[in-house]
Simulated assay, not measured.
Amino acid sequence: MPATNRAVLTRRRALGAALGTVTAAALSPAVTAAASAASAAPPNRQIRQIRQIPLQGAVNVRDIGGYRAAGGGRVRYGQVYRADALSRLTDADLTTLENLRLRQAVDFRVPLEVRYDGADRLPAGVTGVARPVTDNGLYARILTAIASRDPVQQEEMLGGGRAAAFMRSVYPMFVTSADNRARFAATLHDIAYGGRGALLYHCTSGKDRTGWTTYVLLRLLGVSQRAAVDDYLASNTFRAAYDAKLRESLGQSGAMQDPDLLVPLQEVRTDYLTAALDQVRTDYGSLHRYVTEGLGVDRRTTALLRARLVY
């Protein structure tokens, strides 16, 4: 076997072994269920208003409804859901999703994520749509750092503020990449024109690509900046126990000497969202122009979204 092929195979095996460590412990359905239970009663008032969908195989699944919109209306429940990966859902979870009357599930994950995490498990009759939005190599970076099992390399990759800086480099691509914009636009179009049934969109953690989509949609519906940011930041609460268990598992297995290096990659932060919004201002001047010019969402589509989702 040529040396180049051996190197590629070795790297894939290392990544697979790293993922196996994660999957066997922190990402098992039992642990996920425990983490979900631990975050089922979040502490602050804004979180309590969010309708979480309790599942055993995913922890950040929620209805975007309930928020007050401009003009005194509210965003409808039961129309749009945001989620983390659906690859580890149990049979009981599928029954729960059946009750949501979903028609479509949009997957923002890139092929590497699907390859290692697995394809979505969906109820019969739900159309799965692959609509990959780049994570700027985030998932590969996490796997590479874990697979190295080298605390010096992990510190060089993630320490000293580098992990947070990397996250701030991911978000502007939601604005600058034509492919990303096309996939966000297609999802908004599907919500507006999709007919009966609810739509769910998700990425791996349900916090970055999913968080940006939800922020844009809520603002388009007339939800206040503060409420849209609160919804974005709520991922930290819903994911806290799950992510802590992952770090604990990596530390106990010896894969990472300092698992807290992952915290900036696991969290959402206002400066990550600000990085995208700064790019919006640079490229378009306003979020409205980003939506109308960057995403190509015209007045008719906006009117349909508001008619469908606000009452």
Rank of each mutant, 00 (worst) to 15 (best):
T176G: 04
A255F: 01
M157S: 12
G16M: 06
A164Q: 10
T90R: 06
A37E: 15
G294T: 02
D93N: 13
T270D: 06
R269N: 07
A228Q: 01
T214Y: 02
S224F: 14
G65Y: 09
L273F: 06
P172A: 03
A244T: 09
A276R: 12
N5P: 00
R82F: 10
L220T: 15
Y215S: 02
T144S: 12
R48E: 11
L9W: 09
M167V: 02
L295V: 07
R131M: 14
L233C: 08
A147K: 00
Y77R: 12
L217Q: 11
V59C: 06
A40Q: 12
A41I: 06
Q154M: 04
R51P: 04
R101N: 13
S87A: 14
A164D: 14
R13A: 10
R281L: 12
L277Y: 13
K245M: 11
L138V: 11
R149I: 07
D230R: 09
T4P: 00
L100S: 00
P151C: 09
T270A: 12
D283H: 12
A186D: 09
R181Y: 12
S36C: 11
V223D: 12
P2E: 15
T302R: 14
L218H: 06
R11A: 14
A198C: 03
R82H: 11
V280D: 07
D91C: 04
L122H: 00
G128L: 14
L97C: 03
V114C: 10
S28E: 07
V133H: 03
D243E: 14
R209D: 04
G160L: 12
D260G: 08
G254K: 03
S36D: 15
Q52Y: 12
L112P: 03
E155R: 15
D190I: 07
D120G: 04
V8W: 07
R239E: 04
T23L: 15
S286H: 10
D283I: 00
A145H: 07
V126Q: 09
E113C: 07
G72N: 03
L188K: 13
D93G: 09
R109P: 05
Y171N: 09
V229E: 10
G296T: 13
L295D: 00
R82W: 08
A18N: 04
A83S: 15
S249N: 05
V114R: 15
P42L: 11
R149V: 09
P172K: 08
M157C: 03
N99Q: 14
L309T: 02
A70T: 00
V126W: 05
R299H: 11
R269A: 07
L100D: 00
A3I: 11
E156H: 12
T32L: 13
R239Q: 09
C203E: 08
Y242M: 10
S87T: 14
Q56S: 15
S87C: 14
V175K: 13
T96C: 08
Y171H: 01
A234M: 08
L19H: 11
N44S: 05
Y284L: 05
Y77G: 05
A165T: 03
